[in-house]
Computed example of a mutant assay.
Amino acid sequence: MATILNMVETRTEKSVRNAKVALIFYLVQILLGFFSRKAFFDYLGSEILGLNTTVANLLGFLNLAELGIGTSVGYFLYKPLFEKDHEKINEIVSLQGWLYRKIAYFMLGVSAILMVFFPLIFAKSPLSLWYSYSTFGVLLFSSMLGYFFNYRQIVLNADQKGYKIQIVVQGFVVVKTIIQILGITYSAFPYVFWIVVELLSAVITSFLLHRLLKKEYSWLKGNVACGKSYLKKYPEVLKKTKQAFFHKMGGVILSQSSPLVIYAFTSLSIVALYGNYLLIVSKVGALMGAIFNSTGAAVGNLVASNDRKRIIDVFWELSDSRMCISTICILCLFYLTNPLITLWLGANYCLGKDFLLLFRFFVKFGGTSSIVNKESWLSVVCFLP
């Protein structure tokens, strides 16, 4: 009994540590996010900001191919981490690397085809096409680094050491954002400065993550070449991936498609205004994530202990708490979003109350952000024995 209590205390301590670090970076980033968006509007304009939002959502659709793999692999890592089975961890990570590499090649092929149609897609935009190609290229490059190199960070998340990823990644994001704010404010070529810093930060972050993993898990060796052979040894990975995929797909499609639909019928400037609302919602969602997502690995570790009754009890306790708090957040957003944007950017950057009402329903039932997102818990339910 003492051992079990000690394990629970350890899970709780790690969850609290993860939540604290995530919350600190959330507060710093929400402050910087408002300053950086204001600078973007003032020195680059709404058209470029709308273009960034649209391009990011195009790439988001391509990332649908990944949905479920990270969640599934994370689940299968809980038990070997619990048992300190390094060989099995290496095999599962190798399988993940092989799957991610296949997805990366698919995304590169589709991206090449998509870029051929950029002149048609961005025909309404007054911006030169090099803006579209450079933005998409940098974001695609950052995504590819995750698929080819950074995928092993899932071990840290599964081992309840996600706070270390937050310190490295989010810490550097803070530095990057400050540099970009100063750069686009004082540089003679603000957008070129922004895009170069974005590219360099992706490379540096990947290098820092590699060093962190090497320091924490010197025995971790992802052998991608053998990944296919491990697929036969762990066929359940694909099965669980499909289950997690359908839980996550609807919300992602809905959130990624909305800016594209808006651009199809309006302009990039309207997309930029819509992005203001998305930013506020995403920040509130990040706060919810900072509070609740840190418990995901703890529950995964609990799943490894096979205490089914406790798993179900904890699942419903946290799910009910999240839904209650999220409902309060939705009501606050409805009444406070437009006044906040007016104070932040000006009344001319607000959209109408009819839009705001529809947007609140969209957030509540469509899953635009992690405000009402229970995907980590749904995935745990999928994986219950």
Score class of each variant (00 low, 15 high):
Ile154Gly: 03
Thr205Leu: 11
Trp194Ile: 04
Gly60Val: 08
Ile371Gln: 08
Phe292Ala: 01
Arg360Gly: 13
Glu91Cys: 09
Tyr230Glu: 02
Phe246Gly: 12
Gly60Ile: 08
Ser72Asn: 08
Ala123Phe: 13
Leu336Phe: 15
Tyr191Gly: 02
Lys102Pro: 04
Val314Arg: 10
Leu51Asp: 03
Phe172Asn: 09
Val21Phe: 00
Leu345Ser: 09
Phe193Leu: 11
Leu67Gly: 08
Tyr78Phe: 15
Gly289Leu: 04
Asn52Leu: 12
Asn150Ile: 00
Glu83Arg: 12
Val28Ala: 09
Ser36Asn: 11
Leu384Phe: 03
Arg152Asp: 00
Tyr163Met: 06
Ser379Glu: 00
Cys350Ala: 10
Val73Thr: 06
Thr12Asn: 09
Asp307His: 14
Cys324Leu: 15
Ala123Met: 09
Leu358His: 04
Gly109Phe: 07
Val224Trp: 02
Leu336Asn: 07
Pro119Gln: 06
Ile280Ala: 01
Thr10Leu: 12
Tyr78Val: 02
Tyr43Phe: 14
Tyr163Leu: 05
Lys161Cys: 07
Gly275Thr: 07
Phe148Trp: 07
Leu156Lys: 04
Lys221Pro: 09
Met288Gly: 04
Ser218Pro: 07
Trp344His: 02
Ser369Tyr: 03
Ser326Val: 06
Ile92Ser: 10
Met249Arg: 00
Pro339Tyr: 12
Gly74Ile: 00
Leu31Cys: 13
Ala56Trp: 07
Val303Phe: 07
Asn373Met: 05
Phe117His: 02
Leu358Phe: 10
Glu236Arg: 14
Leu59Arg: 01
Ala65Lys: 03
Ile92Gln: 09
Val381Cys: 08
Trp130His: 13
Lys374Arg: 09
Gly352His: 11
Phe25Thr: 02
Ala2Tyr: 08
Leu182Ser: 11
Val314Ala: 09
Thr327Ala: 14
Trp377Glu: 04
Leu336Gly: 07
Leu59Lys: 02
Val372Cys: 14
Ile184Met: 11
Glu236Val: 04
Thr177Arg: 15
Tyr263Glu: 00
Ser321Thr: 12
Glu216Met: 07
Lys240Thr: 00
Leu212Asp: 06
Pro190Ile: 02
Lys309Pro: 03
Thr342Asp: 11
Leu31Gln: 06
Phe41Ser: 02
Phe383Leu: 03
Val155Ala: 10
Arg152Trp: 05
Ala272Gln: 01
Gly227Asn: 06
Ser255Gln: 13
Gln160Trp: 00
Val169His: 10
Lys102Gly: 14
Tyr277Met: 02
Ile270Lys: 08
Leu49Arg: 00
Phe141Cys: 10
Gly346Glu: 12
Leu213Cys: 14
Arg360Leu: 15
Phe136Asn: 00
Glu216Thr: 13
Arg11Ile: 08
Thr177Cys: 11
Asp354Thr: 13
Thr266Glu: 01
Gly97Asp: 01
Ile325Asp: 05
